[in-house]
Amino acid sequence: MTDASMPPPAAPPKPSAPPPPPSRPPSSADDVHDLRPPRNQWWDVWDQFKTHKGAMAGMLVFVSIILFVTVGPWIWQVDPGLIDIRSRNLGSSWTHPMGTDQLGRDLLARMMYGGRVSVAVGLMAMLLGIVLGTLIGVLAGYFKLLDAPLMRTTDLFLALPLLPLLLILVALFRDVLEGVFGQAMGVFTLIVVAIAITSWMQTARIVRGDVLALKEREFVLAARSIGTPSRRINTRHILPNVMSPIMVSATLGIASAIITESALSFLGLGFPPDFPTWGRILYDGRDWIEQYPARVVWPGVFISLTVLSVNFIGDGLRDALDPRIRGR
Protein backbone atom coordinates (compact mmCIF):
# COMPACT_ATOMS: atom_id res chain seq x y z
CA MET A 1 0.00 0.00 0.00
CA THR A 2 2.61 2.51 1.05
CA ASP A 3 5.05 1.09 -1.36
CA ALA A 4 6.16 3.77 -3.77
CA SER A 5 9.34 1.97 -4.59
CA MET A 6 7.25 -0.40 -6.63
CA PRO A 7 7.90 0.21 -10.29
CA PRO A 8 5.21 2.43 -11.73
CA PRO A 9 2.46 0.51 -13.41
CA ALA A 10 3.61 0.81 -17.01
CA ALA A 11 0.26 1.32 -18.65
CA PRO A 12 -2.51 0.86 -16.14
CA PRO A 13 -6.00 0.74 -17.53
CA LYS A 14 -6.70 4.41 -17.19
CA PRO A 15 -10.09 5.11 -18.52
CA SER A 16 -10.46 7.97 -16.08
CA ALA A 17 -8.23 10.19 -18.20
CA PRO A 18 -10.53 12.25 -20.36
CA PRO A 19 -9.80 12.43 -24.08
CA PRO A 20 -6.98 14.75 -25.10
CA PRO A 21 -7.98 18.39 -25.20
CA PRO A 22 -7.71 19.05 -28.95
CA SER A 23 -11.22 17.95 -29.75
CA ARG A 24 -11.60 15.32 -32.42
CA PRO A 25 -12.99 16.57 -35.68
CA PRO A 26 -16.45 15.04 -35.98
CA SER A 27 -15.72 13.93 -39.51
CA SER A 28 -14.97 10.26 -39.05
CA ALA A 29 -17.57 7.85 -40.30
CA ASP A 30 -18.64 6.68 -36.83
CA ASP A 31 -19.61 10.13 -35.76
CA VAL A 32 -21.91 10.91 -38.64
CA HIS A 33 -25.00 10.35 -36.55
CA ASP A 34 -23.70 12.37 -33.67
CA LEU A 35 -24.51 15.85 -34.87
CA ARG A 36 -24.95 17.43 -31.47
CA PRO A 37 -22.89 20.59 -31.07
CA PRO A 38 -19.60 19.99 -29.28
CA ARG A 39 -20.06 20.18 -25.57
CA ASN A 40 -17.64 21.07 -22.85
CA GLN A 41 -16.86 17.91 -20.87
CA TRP A 42 -17.50 19.75 -17.60
CA TRP A 43 -21.19 19.89 -18.54
CA ASP A 44 -21.20 16.08 -18.63
CA VAL A 45 -19.53 16.05 -15.27
CA TRP A 46 -22.15 18.40 -13.88
CA ASP A 47 -24.98 16.27 -15.32
CA GLN A 48 -23.55 13.20 -13.63
CA PHE A 49 -22.94 15.12 -10.41
CA LYS A 50 -26.57 16.22 -10.31
CA THR A 51 -27.77 12.63 -10.15
CA HIS A 52 -25.88 12.00 -6.91
CA LYS A 53 -28.41 12.90 -4.24
CA GLY A 54 -25.95 12.95 -1.37
CA ALA A 55 -23.60 15.21 -3.28
CA MET A 56 -26.38 17.65 -4.13
CA ALA A 57 -27.51 17.74 -0.51
CA GLY A 58 -23.91 18.26 0.52
CA MET A 59 -23.54 21.07 -1.98
CA LEU A 60 -26.67 22.75 -0.60
CA VAL A 61 -25.44 22.49 2.98
CA PHE A 62 -21.96 23.67 2.08
CA VAL A 63 -23.23 26.68 0.15
CA SER A 64 -25.53 27.54 3.09
CA ILE A 65 -22.59 27.37 5.48
CA ILE A 66 -20.49 29.55 3.20
CA LEU A 67 -23.35 32.07 3.05
CA PHE A 68 -23.75 31.85 6.83
CA VAL A 69 -20.13 32.80 7.43
CA THR A 70 -19.75 35.35 4.63
CA VAL A 71 -23.10 37.13 4.34
CA GLY A 72 -24.22 36.31 7.88
CA PRO A 73 -22.20 38.97 9.72
CA TRP A 74 -23.75 41.66 7.51
CA ILE A 75 -27.24 40.61 8.50
CA TRP A 76 -26.51 39.80 12.13
CA GLN A 77 -24.49 42.87 13.01
CA VAL A 78 -23.37 41.96 16.50
CA ASP A 79 -19.77 42.31 17.55
CA PRO A 80 -18.55 38.79 18.40
CA GLY A 81 -16.10 40.22 20.92
CA LEU A 82 -18.59 42.48 22.70
CA ILE A 83 -18.55 41.54 26.37
CA ASP A 84 -21.89 42.09 28.08
CA ILE A 85 -21.45 40.58 31.49
CA ARG A 86 -25.07 41.24 32.51
CA SER A 87 -26.46 38.94 29.86
CA ARG A 88 -24.04 36.06 30.30
CA ASN A 89 -24.92 32.39 30.04
CA LEU A 90 -28.26 33.03 28.35
CA GLY A 91 -30.18 30.39 26.47
CA SER A 92 -31.75 30.85 23.07
CA SER A 93 -33.87 33.94 22.66
CA TRP A 94 -34.68 36.46 19.93
CA THR A 95 -31.90 38.77 21.02
CA HIS A 96 -29.39 35.90 21.13
CA PRO A 97 -30.59 33.04 18.88
CA MET A 98 -27.82 30.70 20.05
CA GLY A 99 -27.49 32.17 23.51
CA THR A 100 -24.44 33.82 25.02
CA ASP A 101 -21.26 32.54 26.65
CA GLN A 102 -19.83 33.07 30.10
CA LEU A 103 -18.78 36.61 29.20
CA GLY A 104 -22.07 37.51 27.59
CA ARG A 105 -20.72 37.38 24.04
CA ASP A 106 -23.29 36.50 21.41
CA LEU A 107 -22.78 32.93 20.26
CA LEU A 108 -24.36 33.38 16.84
CA ALA A 109 -21.98 36.20 15.97
CA ARG A 110 -19.06 34.17 17.29
CA MET A 111 -20.14 31.19 15.20
CA MET A 112 -20.24 33.36 12.09
CA TYR A 113 -16.82 34.90 12.63
CA GLY A 114 -15.41 31.60 13.85
CA GLY A 115 -16.75 29.88 10.77
CA ARG A 116 -15.03 32.46 8.61
CA VAL A 117 -11.69 31.53 10.10
CA SER A 118 -12.35 27.80 10.06
CA VAL A 119 -13.52 27.75 6.45
CA ALA A 120 -10.76 30.14 5.38
CA VAL A 121 -8.14 27.91 7.02
CA GLY A 122 -9.68 24.89 5.33
CA LEU A 123 -9.68 26.49 1.88
CA MET A 124 -6.25 28.08 2.11
CA ALA A 125 -4.57 24.99 3.55
CA MET A 126 -6.22 22.86 0.88
CA LEU A 127 -5.10 25.21 -1.90
CA LEU A 128 -1.54 25.32 -0.67
CA GLY A 129 -1.44 21.57 -0.10
CA ILE A 130 -2.86 20.86 -3.55
CA VAL A 131 -0.42 23.22 -5.27
CA LEU A 132 2.48 21.64 -3.41
CA GLY A 133 1.25 18.11 -4.04
CA THR A 134 0.56 18.73 -7.72
CA LEU A 135 3.91 20.40 -8.25
CA ILE A 136 5.80 17.54 -6.63
CA GLY A 137 3.65 14.94 -8.36
CA VAL A 138 4.16 16.47 -11.81
CA LEU A 139 7.89 16.97 -11.29
CA ALA A 140 8.32 13.41 -10.05
CA GLY A 141 6.19 11.92 -12.77
CA TYR A 142 7.58 13.92 -15.67
CA PHE A 143 11.28 14.19 -14.90
CA LYS A 144 12.89 10.82 -14.35
CA LEU A 145 15.81 12.33 -12.50
CA LEU A 146 13.60 13.86 -9.84
CA ASP A 147 11.35 10.86 -9.42
CA ALA A 148 13.33 8.86 -6.89
CA PRO A 149 14.34 11.70 -4.55
CA LEU A 150 10.90 13.29 -4.57
CA MET A 151 9.09 10.04 -3.97
CA ARG A 152 11.46 9.09 -1.16
CA THR A 153 10.65 12.45 0.40
CA THR A 154 6.96 11.72 0.02
CA ASP A 155 7.37 8.34 1.69
CA LEU A 156 9.30 9.98 4.46
CA PHE A 157 6.55 12.52 5.06
CA LEU A 158 3.99 9.75 5.07
CA ALA A 159 5.96 8.02 7.80
CA LEU A 160 6.01 11.11 10.02
CA PRO A 161 3.63 11.23 12.95
CA LEU A 162 1.64 14.13 11.60
CA LEU A 163 -0.58 15.23 14.46
CA PRO A 164 2.27 15.36 17.00
CA LEU A 165 4.43 17.22 14.49
CA LEU A 166 1.67 19.72 13.79
CA LEU A 167 1.30 20.34 17.50
CA ILE A 168 5.04 20.82 17.84
CA LEU A 169 5.21 23.14 14.83
CA VAL A 170 2.45 25.32 16.22
CA ALA A 171 3.93 25.36 19.71
CA LEU A 172 7.41 26.19 18.43
CA PHE A 173 6.75 28.82 15.82
CA ARG A 174 3.67 30.59 17.10
CA ASP A 175 5.60 33.31 18.91
CA VAL A 176 8.02 33.83 16.03
CA LEU A 177 5.27 34.29 13.45
CA GLU A 178 3.13 36.40 15.76
CA GLY A 179 6.06 38.77 15.92
CA VAL A 180 6.27 38.97 12.12
CA PHE A 181 2.62 39.05 11.01
CA GLY A 182 0.76 40.17 14.10
CA GLN A 183 -1.21 37.92 16.38
CA ALA A 184 -4.14 36.83 14.26
CA MET A 185 -2.37 36.69 10.90
CA GLY A 186 0.65 34.99 12.42
CA VAL A 187 -1.35 32.10 13.80
CA PHE A 188 -3.41 31.92 10.63
CA THR A 189 -0.33 31.70 8.41
CA LEU A 190 1.30 29.19 10.71
CA ILE A 191 -1.69 26.88 10.85
CA VAL A 192 -2.35 27.07 7.12
CA VAL A 193 1.28 26.35 6.24
CA ALA A 194 1.59 23.64 8.87
CA ILE A 195 -1.53 21.84 7.66
CA ALA A 196 -0.44 22.21 4.03
CA ILE A 197 3.04 20.76 4.53
CA THR A 198 1.59 17.77 6.34
CA SER A 199 -1.12 16.99 3.82
CA TRP A 200 0.30 17.18 0.29
CA MET A 201 1.57 13.60 0.06
CA GLN A 202 -1.52 11.78 -1.17
CA THR A 203 -2.06 14.30 -3.95
CA ALA A 204 1.56 14.04 -5.01
CA ARG A 205 1.32 10.28 -5.27
CA ILE A 206 -1.90 10.26 -7.23
CA VAL A 207 -0.70 12.97 -9.60
CA ARG A 208 2.64 11.27 -10.16
CA GLY A 209 0.92 8.02 -11.05
CA ASP A 210 -1.35 9.74 -13.55
CA VAL A 211 1.46 11.78 -15.07
CA LEU A 212 3.57 8.67 -15.53
CA ALA A 213 0.77 7.08 -17.52
CA LEU A 214 -0.10 10.24 -19.45
CA LYS A 215 3.36 11.11 -20.65
CA GLU A 216 3.50 7.89 -22.67
CA ARG A 217 0.38 8.85 -24.60
CA GLU A 218 0.45 9.86 -28.23
CA PHE A 219 -0.76 13.40 -27.74
CA VAL A 220 2.17 14.15 -25.49
CA LEU A 221 4.49 12.61 -28.05
CA ALA A 222 2.84 14.75 -30.71
CA ALA A 223 3.28 17.87 -28.63
CA ARG A 224 6.90 17.04 -28.04
CA SER A 225 7.60 16.29 -31.69
CA ILE A 226 6.41 19.73 -32.75
CA GLY A 227 8.91 21.18 -30.31
CA THR A 228 6.76 22.11 -27.34
CA PRO A 229 8.98 22.81 -24.35
CA SER A 230 8.53 20.64 -21.25
CA ARG A 231 7.01 23.44 -19.27
CA ARG A 232 4.25 23.94 -21.78
CA ILE A 233 3.64 20.22 -22.27
CA ASN A 234 2.99 20.07 -18.57
CA THR A 235 0.76 23.08 -18.30
CA ARG A 236 -1.17 22.62 -21.55
CA HIS A 237 -1.39 18.87 -22.00
CA ILE A 238 -0.68 17.02 -18.81
CA LEU A 239 -2.15 19.22 -16.09
CA PRO A 240 -5.63 19.52 -17.64
CA ASN A 241 -5.76 15.75 -17.80
CA VAL A 242 -4.91 15.18 -14.16
CA MET A 243 -7.49 17.71 -13.00
CA SER A 244 -10.04 15.07 -12.00
CA PRO A 245 -8.05 13.36 -9.25
CA ILE A 246 -6.73 16.74 -8.13
CA MET A 247 -10.24 18.09 -7.74
CA VAL A 248 -11.35 15.07 -5.74
CA SER A 249 -8.40 15.27 -3.40
CA ALA A 250 -8.90 19.03 -3.13
CA THR A 251 -12.44 18.49 -1.90
CA LEU A 252 -11.39 15.89 0.62
CA GLY A 253 -8.48 18.16 1.57
CA ILE A 254 -10.87 20.91 2.69
CA ALA A 255 -12.60 18.46 5.01
CA SER A 256 -9.44 17.18 6.61
CA ALA A 257 -7.96 20.69 6.94
CA ILE A 258 -11.05 21.91 8.77
CA ILE A 259 -10.92 18.90 11.10
CA THR A 260 -7.21 19.42 11.73
CA GLU A 261 -7.64 23.10 12.53
CA SER A 262 -10.50 22.34 14.90
CA ALA A 263 -8.47 19.59 16.54
CA LEU A 264 -5.56 21.97 17.07
CA SER A 265 -7.88 24.57 18.56
CA PHE A 266 -9.51 21.86 20.64
CA LEU A 267 -6.14 20.86 22.07
CA GLY A 268 -5.53 24.50 22.96
CA LEU A 269 -2.79 24.91 20.36
CA GLY A 270 -4.73 26.73 17.70
CA PHE A 271 -5.96 30.30 17.62
CA PRO A 272 -5.81 32.50 20.73
CA PRO A 273 -8.91 32.65 22.95
CA ASP A 274 -10.17 36.06 21.84
CA PHE A 275 -10.09 34.91 18.24
CA PRO A 276 -13.06 32.60 17.76
CA THR A 277 -12.94 29.56 15.51
CA TRP A 278 -15.35 26.66 15.68
CA GLY A 279 -12.80 24.43 17.34
CA ARG A 280 -11.92 27.14 19.85
CA ILE A 281 -15.59 27.77 20.74
CA LEU A 282 -16.02 24.04 21.27
CA TYR A 283 -12.91 23.94 23.44
CA ASP A 284 -14.11 26.89 25.52
CA GLY A 285 -17.57 25.42 25.86
CA ARG A 286 -16.28 22.10 27.18
CA ASP A 287 -15.90 23.39 30.72
CA TRP A 288 -19.57 24.41 30.76
CA ILE A 289 -20.96 21.28 29.20
CA GLU A 290 -23.00 20.23 32.23
CA GLN A 291 -24.80 23.56 32.58
CA TYR A 292 -24.92 24.83 29.00
CA PRO A 293 -24.57 21.97 26.50
CA ALA A 294 -25.66 24.20 23.61
CA ARG A 295 -22.27 25.86 23.72
CA VAL A 296 -20.47 22.72 22.55
CA VAL A 297 -23.27 21.38 20.40
CA TRP A 298 -23.47 24.36 18.04
CA PRO A 299 -19.81 24.49 17.00
CA GLY A 300 -19.65 20.70 16.90
CA VAL A 301 -22.67 20.49 14.66
CA PHE A 302 -21.27 23.14 12.34
CA ILE A 303 -17.88 21.45 12.05
CA SER A 304 -19.52 18.09 11.45
CA LEU A 305 -22.00 19.43 8.90
CA THR A 306 -19.26 21.19 6.97
CA VAL A 307 -17.02 18.15 6.88
CA LEU A 308 -19.90 15.82 6.09
CA SER A 309 -21.15 17.99 3.24
CA VAL A 310 -17.66 18.36 1.79
CA ASN A 311 -17.13 14.61 1.97
CA PHE A 312 -20.41 13.99 0.18
CA ILE A 313 -19.44 16.50 -2.50
CA GLY A 314 -16.14 14.66 -2.85
CA ASP A 315 -17.96 11.36 -3.27
CA GLY A 316 -20.25 12.78 -5.91
CA LEU A 317 -17.35 14.43 -7.68
CA ARG A 318 -15.40 11.20 -7.76
CA ASP A 319 -18.34 9.44 -9.39
CA ALA A 320 -18.98 12.31 -11.77
CA LEU A 321 -15.37 12.51 -12.90
CA ASP A 322 -15.16 8.80 -13.57
CA PRO A 323 -16.03 8.30 -17.24
CA ARG A 324 -16.77 4.65 -16.60
CA ILE A 325 -19.79 5.71 -14.58
CA ARG A 326 -20.59 8.93 -16.42
CA GLY A 327 -23.12 8.64 -19.18
CA ARG A 328 -24.65 5.47 -17.84
Binding site: G54, A255, I259, S262, A263, F266, G279, L282, V296, G300, I303, S304, V307, L308, N311, F312, D315
Partner: peptide, 10 residues
Protein backbone atom coordinates in the same frame (compact mmCIF):
# COMPACT_ATOMS: atom_id res chain seq x y z
CA UNK B 1 -19.85 8.62 6.22
CA UNK B 2 -21.16 10.43 9.28
CA UNK B 3 -18.87 8.38 11.50
CA UNK B 4 -15.70 9.50 9.86
CA UNK B 5 -16.85 13.04 9.11
CA UNK B 6 -17.77 13.87 12.68
CA UNK B 7 -14.50 14.52 14.48
CA UNK B 8 -13.80 12.43 17.58
CA UNK B 9 -13.63 15.48 19.79
CA UNK B 10 -17.26 16.16 19.00
Amino acid sequence: MVGFSVPTFF
